[in-house]
Structures are given as structure tokens and as C-alpha cells.
């Protein structure tokens, strides 16, 4: 049994005053994107519970702050995600209707019903589909960065993915060729339900540093994530390991118990402290209603037909 303890906490790596330094409009936009993803997943959860979704779903809820923050920095990048891709898709401006239709299995879905939740692909936002095997998209993202040196690439994955043998090959290749790629590990500490400490004794940020890639290990506070992403974006390739927690099961609509911390609630609390609570509340209500209406009308149409 490995003995290394992960520094899992909502404050890991926090920089005092980092939220205060962020412009108000950016703070609100990050929160709006978080809400878009959170309320989409809540509706997907309910739809799945009600039996409307027949395929496997991988919900991002709880982890959306990471992609929301990255999306405000890596605009226009090629986006590669793995199976838990709802948050990257929706926070980078993906079409919620196309994702909903994909989960339902309609031809109008972003993969025409072929891929479902884990295979989101949408050229409109430069998001390249994931086929399903863990971390297989990482070498592909690195290859894209090599072949299109005029663009940047952002590649999301989980803490299990970094254990895939070919992940190291990709990391090394990106370092060797100094590719413009930002690796983002959404580290929820779980491979399905097996904690990281049962699986490995090493930390991925140390591995990244060992091949010459700048790396940080931080909590999922969006202001903190954005701060580091901005800093590292000028020094690619770079690596961000974000400690985060998912609300629901690894796959499907269920809960294992309360997450270790509730970033969504913490962000709302911080927005209040920043004097942005009123505007944030309006944004949240607006986004919640918009997403609920989207799902409701589609499911009603389906029921009618």
C-alpha cells in the first residue's frame, strides 16, 4: 500500500487575494459558465433517473470550476477532453442542445447519437472527440499541437489517465518539442472508487517537472486556476493538477455521498464577499431556468412523439 497522502483540501495552494485581483466581469463570467455546466448536469441527472437516457453518462458536476476558469484563458484553443467532458464542452461555449440531444441519442446530437456522453465532438468550438479509452486523447492532443504550431491546445483528463503508460510518452514528446499545450488534470482522487493512494506512490506534477514541464498542484478554486493558467499560458507546455470533487457517480446518475467540499457553494460565498452576490444570483437563476426549459421542452416533445 502506498503511503503518500494527497494534499486534498479546498484551500490547497491558495494565493491570498487572488479572487480580489480578478476583474468583476471575469468573475461573473466564470460563474455563469459554472452554472451552465452545473444546471445542465443536474437536468441530465434527473433525466437519467427518470429513464430518458439509455446510454452511459459521465457527469461533471462538482468539477466545473476547473474548465470554467481555463475557458476564460485558453480561448480559441483546440480542446481535447476525455469521458467527463460536459464541463469543458459547455464552459468553452458548446451547444447545450446538441449535447442534450446526444445524451438522448438523437441524430441532432453532437455525435449523431454514436458517441453519447464520453465522446463529445464539436468543430464549432474546436473540440475534438474522445473515443473512450482513458488518456488515449493525450498523445492525439500532443500530435495536434505539433502539427498546428499556430494554435494552442488544452487537454483535460483525470488522475487515472495519468497512470496510462502512453501518457508519459505524450508528456515527454510535448516537452521535447516544446509544444503549445496546456495539460489539465481534474484530480478527483478516484479511479471509479479507488483512491489515488491505493494506485500509485508518485505525484503527476513531479513527473511533469521531471521532463522539464512547468507544473502546479492546486485546488479547484476558479480564481486560482485562472491565475495559474494565465501565467503558464505563456510558457507552454505546462501542467496544472487541480484537486477537485465530483458530486455524482463515476458513471450514471447516483451519489456516493457528499463530496469532500462544495466548490460551487464556496464560489457563491466568495462572490458575496466580493460584493457580486446580487449579480451572481441573477445569473444563476437565469442559467438555471434556461437549462431547465431546454430539457423540459425536449423531453415533452419526445414524450409526445
Amino acid at each position: 500500500m502506498a503511503t503518500t497522502i494527497s494534499p486534498r483540501s479546498p484551500d490547497h495552494g491558495m494565493i491570498p487575494g487572488v479572487a480580489e485581483q480578478c476583474p468583476a466581469d471575469v468573475s461573473l463570467e466564470m460563474f455563469r459558465r459554472m452554472c451552465r455546466s452545473r444546471y445542465f448536469d443536474e437536468q441530465a441527472f434527473l433525466a437519467s433517473k427518470a429513464g430518458h437516457l439509455k446510454s452511459l453518462i459521465y457527469l461533471s458536476a462538482g468539477q466545473e470550476s476547473v474548465a470554467a476558469a481555463i475557458s476564460t484563458v485558453m480561448k480559441g484553443s483546440w480542446i481535447f477532453t476525455q469521458h467527463r467532458g460536459h464541463a469543458p464542452y459547455l464552459t468553452f461555449g458548446g451547444n447545450a442542445t446538441k449535447l442534450m440531444d446526444e445524451l438522448i441519442g438523437l441524430p441532432s446530437g453532437c455525435c449523431g447519437g454514436m458517441g453519447g456522453s464520453p465522446c463529445i465532438h464539436d468543430p464549432d468550438i474546436r473540440m475534438i472527440g474522445h473515443e473512450g479509452l482513458i488518456a488515449e486523447h493525450v498523445p492525439i492532443a500532443v500530435g495536434a499541437a505539433l502539427a498546428d504550431p499556430g494554435s494552442t491546445v488544452v487537454c483535460f483528463f483525470g488522475d487515472g489517465a495519468v497512470e496510462e503508460d502512453y501518457f508519459f510518452g505524450a508528456l515527454g514528446f510535448a516537452a521535447t518539442h516544446k509544444l503549445k499545450i496546456l495539460f489539465v488534470c481534474e484530480d478527483n482522487d478516484l479511479s471509479v472508487l479507488t483512491p489515488t493512494t491505493d494506485r500509485r506512490s508518485w505525484q503527476i506534477q513531479d513527473v511533469a517537472r521531471s521532463v522539464g514541464i512547468r507544473a502546479v498542484d492546486i485546488t479547484d478554486d476558479p480564481w486560482l486556476v485562472r491565475h495559474h493558467a494565465k501565467e503558464l499560458a505563456g510558457e507552454l507546455p505546462a501542467f496544472i493538477n487541480c484537486r477537485t470533487c465530483r458530486c455524482y457517480w463515476h458513471v450514471g446518475a447516483g451519489k456516493d455521498g457528499p463530496p469532500e467540499w462544495d466548490r460551487f457553494a464556496l464560489v457563491k460565498q466568495k462572490l458575496d464577499e466580493l460584493g457580486l452576490g446580487g449579480e451572481a444570483g441573477k445569473l444563476e437563476t437565469q442559467m438555471k431556468e434556461e437549462i431547465e426549459l431546454l430539457w423540459k421542452s425536449r423531453l415533452q416533445t419526445l414524450s409526445a412523439t
Binding site: 493525450v138 498523445p139 492525439i140 500530435g143 495536434a144 505539433l146 502539427a147 510518452g169
Partner: peptide, 16 residues
Amino acid sequence: ADVSGPGFAIGAALMG
């Protein structure tokens, strides 16, 4: 890196 190698080529193919 025998398994990641083809992945790099696939990424290049996706970029045309």
C-alpha cells in the same frame, strides 16, 4: 513510445 507514437500521428492527421 510505441503506444503513444501513433497517437501523435493521429493528432497530425486531425490537423490536416
